[in-house]
């Protein structure tokens, strides 16, 4: 990212693309960044990209920060920095698409980032355990950890143009009396984020391609996984202890997803699509289902 490498700064202008899943606060993060930049007297723009998905599925947002008026109204295709609120999004989307050489990547994850998943360009990588911080600071919405504030905190480590106190002020105004936990998470992430410089080979820039399609009748065919492998939406994994299970079928009938199957006289969870809502755990009369924090290898 220009500015990061403290090279010559001719055109002060940054484009940031945020990736995450619904419910994680991607759009809010984009807004907080823009509002904070604005408070620092920059021109700023925050664009949400709403897919048609619900909580849990991949979403995108874009933030532009500039010293000059911003005339673009389009999405960001060649970002200076990508913020990844959830590493699972990397499995369904090319989150690094168009990222500029020397750009920045902020990832919220508790595991190590292997080099293979990163693009072949030189970049500044910032890693923060957003979920861990959210759980520790009790930042939950509808039971899901909210990782947007930790990611902003981590981003601020490498983006000197917005002061953390400015962001604190923006968060306090935005969330009012509920802002305390967010502010704590912000500082915790800022302090614990790990910054790495990575040197890669230059690679050709890919452009977004549109699928060709001739539509005659707007009708769709039934398919399992219309929203992708929704198993990746999981933060917690339900696990059946078969020694306690009586096959009462309460988990089966109540699974909102239909991800519990009746097979040969027992219930089986389809982890490809189970979103990890844990309704099954709550309706099990024998406490035969427990939950584990999900770690995708």
């Amino acid at each position: 990212m220009r500015g990061l490498d403290e090279e010559s700064i001719e055109e002060l202008r940054w484009e940031i693309r945020l990736h995450g899943r619904g419910g994680q606060g991607v759009v809010t993060a984009s807004k907080i960044l823009a509002e904070s930049a604005f408070a620092e007297r920059y021109h700023a723009q925050s664009i949400p990209f709403f897919g048609a998905e619900r909580r849990g599925s991949p979403v995108m947002a874009f933030t532009r920060i500039s010293e000059h008026e911003i005339r673009e109204r389009s999405q960001i295709y060649t970002p200076d920095c990508v913020l990844i609120l959830d590493p699972l999004v990397m499995r369904v989307l090319d989150v690094f698409n168009g990222l500029k050489d020397g750009g920045g990547v902020v990832i919220s994850t508790s595991s190590r980032i292997s080099d293979e998943i990163l693009p072949d360009i030189s970049l500044t990588l910032v890693v923060v355990d957003g979920v861990g911080i959210a759980l520790k600071k009790d930042l939950l919405v509808a039971g899901n950890p909210v990782v947007n504030i930790p990611v902003i905190g981590a981003f601020l480590r490498v983006f000197p143009h917005i002061g953390i106190e400015t962001v604190e002020k923006v968060i306090s105004e935005k969330f009012k009396r509920n802002s305390k936990r967010s502010v704590k998470a912000l500082y915790s992430a800022y302090e614990s984020a790990e910054v790495l410089k990575i040197r890669g080979k230059k690679r050709a820039e890919k452009v977004y391609s549109k699928k060709p399609g001739k539509i005659w009748i707007p009708a769709s065919k039934p398919v399992v996984g219309v929203a992708g492998k929704t198993g990746y939406w999981r933060d917690f994994r339900p696990v059946i202890n078969y020694s306690r299970c009586t096959n009462c079928l309460n988990c089966w009938i109540h699974c909102p997803e239909g991800s519990i199957r009746r097979e040969n006289g027992e219930v089986v969870i389809d982890y490809d699509y189970c979103k990890g809502c844990l309704v099954c755990l709550s309706v099990c009369p024998r406490r035969a289902i427990s939950s584990e924090r999900e770690v995708f290898a």
Binding site: R54, R55, A142, G225, V226, A227, T230, E257, Y273, C277
Partner: peptide, 15 residues
Amino acid sequence: LLEGNSACHGCGSSM
């Protein structure tokens, strides 16, 4: 109602 749809976690309606 096939799995892998885009309903929220714990959706009462899809249930």
